Amino acid sequence: MRVVLDAVGKGRREHALPVTSVAFESGRATLVSAETAQRPTVLGLIASGRMRPDTGRVQLDGRTDAAALRRRVALVDAPDVSEPEPDVTLAGVAAEELMFAGRRSDPVAVRRWLDGHDLGDAASVPVSNVDPAARVSALCELAVLRKGVEGIVLVSPDRHGGDPAGWWGIAEDFTERGFAVLVIAGQASLPLVERAKRDETPRTIGRPRVRRLTAPTKGHRA
């Protein structure tokens, strides 16, 4: 699977999202930066087929098909859209996602799933207080349980704090399982991820790529 965002923008004079081009594909992790509170979510919605850009186009395997893109790409932890309520426990989040995926979601099944992903100790912790890397891992693992999901758009994992190498390593782990991964984060995360990439052992499936949003035209504000 390959998703290409070609010169997409949103809002009057692209205030909501400046014109940008980025691509992500199966077996690779791509990092793109987006600043301000709104733009990461807007970009995530567009990249996952859940919002139509005002300029440019989004193609899935060379075709424009927003419905297929929505089915095949999960939008993970996007503020105000797909992020879990902060006071819900991790077990509660898991139960809901297991139900949506058509899996057993009773307390025993939830406990078994959490234990199987080394998350049992965090079961009763409000998701807002879960370790940042564990949160990303849990939400991504739950997202790919849904039938037909082949890609992940992870929005603003850096907002939870922690070492960016943690969530970037998780993104890479999913690419080794064949998923396409796009991570949207703030500009400050780029050099930290680059350092993490230099420090790690080369992987066998592709080299992750770091992409930057096209800078907004002078005078534009979000």
Rank of each mutant, 00 (worst) to 15 (best):
V3L: 02
V3E: 00
V4Q: 12
A7L: 12
A7I: 04
G11E: 06
E14A: 15
H15Y: 10
A16Q: 15
A16P: 01
L17N: 12
S21H: 05
S21N: 08
G27I: 07
T30E: 14
T30Q: 14
A34L: 03
E35L: 08
T36C: 01
R39G: 00
P40L: 02
L43N: 00
G44R: 04
G44V: 04
L45W: 00
I46Y: 01
A47T: 02
G49Y: 00
R52Y: 05
G56F: 10
R57V: 14
V58N: 06
L60H: 09
L60R: 11
L60D: 04
D61C: 11
G62M: 06
D65C: 10
V73R: 00
L75D: 00
V76I: 13
A78W: 01
V81C: 00
V81L: 04
E83C: 12
P84A: 09
E85V: 13
E85P: 08
P86D: 00
T89I: 07
G92T: 03
V93L: 05
A94K: 03
F100T: 09
A101F: 05
A101V: 07
G102I: 08
G102H: 01
R104H: 07
R112N: 14
L114E: 03
D115Y: 12
H117S: 01
D118C: 09
D118S: 15
L119C: 00
G120Q: 03
A122V: 14
S124N: 15
S124W: 13
S124D: 15
D131V: 02
R135S: 12
C140H: 00
A143F: 07
A143K: 07
V144Y: 07
L145F: 06
V149W: 01
V153W: 01
S156E: 14
H160T: 11
H160N: 12
G161C: 06
G162D: 04
G162N: 02
D163S: 00
G166W: 07
W167Q: 01
G169A: 01
E172N: 10
G178A: 04
F179P: 04
V181Y: 14
L182E: 09
L182F: 05
G186I: 05
Q187W: 11
S189M: 13
P191E: 08
P191Q: 06
P191S: 06
E194C: 05
A196D: 14
A196R: 07
R198C: 10
P202E: 11
G206S: 11
L213E: 14
T217Q: 12
G219Y: 08
R221M: 13
